[in-house]
Design a protein around this nucleic acid. Sequence first.
RNA 1: CGGGACGUGGCGCAGCCUGGUAGCGCACGCGCUUUGGGAGCGCGGGGUCGUCAGUUCGAAUCUGACCGUCCCGACCA
Length: 564
Amino acid sequence: MRASRLLLPTLRDDPADAVAASHKLLVRAGYVRQVGSGLWSFMPLGFRTLTRTMQVIREEMDAIGCQELLMPIMHPEELWRQTGRNMIPELFKLQDRKGSELVLAMTHEETVALHAAGEIRSYRDLPQCWYQFQTKARDEPRPQGGLLRTREFIMKDAYSLDRDEAGLQASYAAQAGAYRRIFDRLGLQYYEVDSDVGMMGGSAAMEYMAPSPAGEDRIALSEDGSYSANVELAVSRATLPDFGPSEPTHEIETPGITTIDQLAEFVGRDPRLTMKAVIVVPEDEQGGVVLALVRGDHRVHDLKLTRAIGGPFRPATPEEIRNVFGAEPGSIGAVGVREGALRDLIVDPVLEHGGYLAGANRTGWHLHGVEYGRDFTGRLVDIRHVEAGELSVETGSPLRIESAIEVGNIFQLGTRYADALGATYLDENSVEQSIWMGSYGIGPARTVAAIAEQCHDEKGLIWPASVAPYDVWITPIGEAALAFADTLDRELSSAGLAVVVDDRDLSPGVRFADADLIGVPLRVTIGKRLEKDGVISIKRRGGADEVDVPVEDAAEALLAFSGS
RNA sequence: CGGGACGUGGCGCAGCCUGGUAGCGCACGCGCUUUGGGAGCGCGGGGUCGUCAGUUCGAAUCUGACCGUCCCGACCA
């Protein structure tokens, strides 16, 4: 293919509004263009890379017996009412001309359960696995980072249907294996981490996380490799202070002290010997205030607390705090709270042992020696944010925290969707049973962006061979060189390689710069030395220096390079 | 939703404070020269200055509203 016939809209400057490396590079190299916030077109170059990425995914799905199908993007809202997910704020809603209510699918569990209910009759029909590449629409509060977070995107979503939990676990394991093969083939560096089930519900989930500074997620990883989890649910062994002997509680006056730092400083004690009170109000109709306690030097993880409460919450106002505790914010604790004043009292398990300095519910005073079980009780739920340097629970290996991009996830859903939509089968005893479902997603476009984040240098993109838009980029300099380039193109193309001959009437420097920016793995330069010495130069993008190859060996050498 | 920034040819920007006929670089078209790392000279085309309203003799510039985009905090492939 001659470059003069291709759309190669490369840019010399970074787009002004781009921050993430993948955003800058994919726009500059002409792979993608923006249509609106979180809405992107894949230009021909980008579409080739996206297609190759999807093909790798398709091959590995097929390899585990998953069957490709296609479900609609537009659904009757009624379908989503049946699982209650029509209330999700990210769900786009619209009406047709008759006023019928429709939604744009943000995922397809409901549709799969609908078809399972319609088509699966017997245990003999199970297990099944279905997948598709389909556009998802999500009314994101904040699209971001170019392709990293968009409002419309293609997802590979697969769904397993099994007769029982053991079957689901086998399907889940098969998907996990396929995912590892997919991301290995795509040349992506990634971690498989335990994750929150989020809006999907269900019992277990893992995420595939590509480490990158542009990533929005934080993952906790143990140094010995035995533990990896999203910080949304990561647990760790906290360091323990020297508590000293247990003492009865006694009040101490702490005038004007409202923060943990001030308190620790004022009494000259380790902040780890203090207790922090977080007061929040659940955002539901029930009303009431929840008191959450963590150690003074720890942070509450919002999502963990959301799970503990069972829904979203907001911080309590100073007035609400005064009303419930009879004291100013900054001197709140669990001891001496009026009976029935709290809707819930959640205690981080770190506080189960030891005596702490805590708020006295009396403005300007704190309590010394407060112990769980003796002085107060509450629901023990892990709500604390894991910190770098803490130790993994099982092996005691130190944890670090990395930023990462979520490129895929797998969920064990259980029977929630099947139950909501009546997806059942008859077992050997003619007893009706619920179908167990799993769902498995990969964002191909986000994966392309994650690869771009990991695989680039100051000159541009450096694609792994499996996803590069073309395999070989030939830059001929001069007429004789162009003729030989076309010959080489024919030879390599018939051997199955995708080749670009950059015949554009541009200076060599510009064409070299474009080739580097676009990131094709193999670069061939044909110049004066073709006629003088009978050699051409081959260079691997991002690899070692150029090597000269005699013209008669050129095709063979390139085929060997592309295969390795 | 809270906070911040920006909107001027295709791209990157200046001009705005201090109102007076819209400019620079790149890109683009034509001609000549040039060809192993973002070439040179010459000529040329292209902009309702986000939109609407207001102030003014006169608005890219001042005021207001709206729209759009990006970034930082709560959500997800």
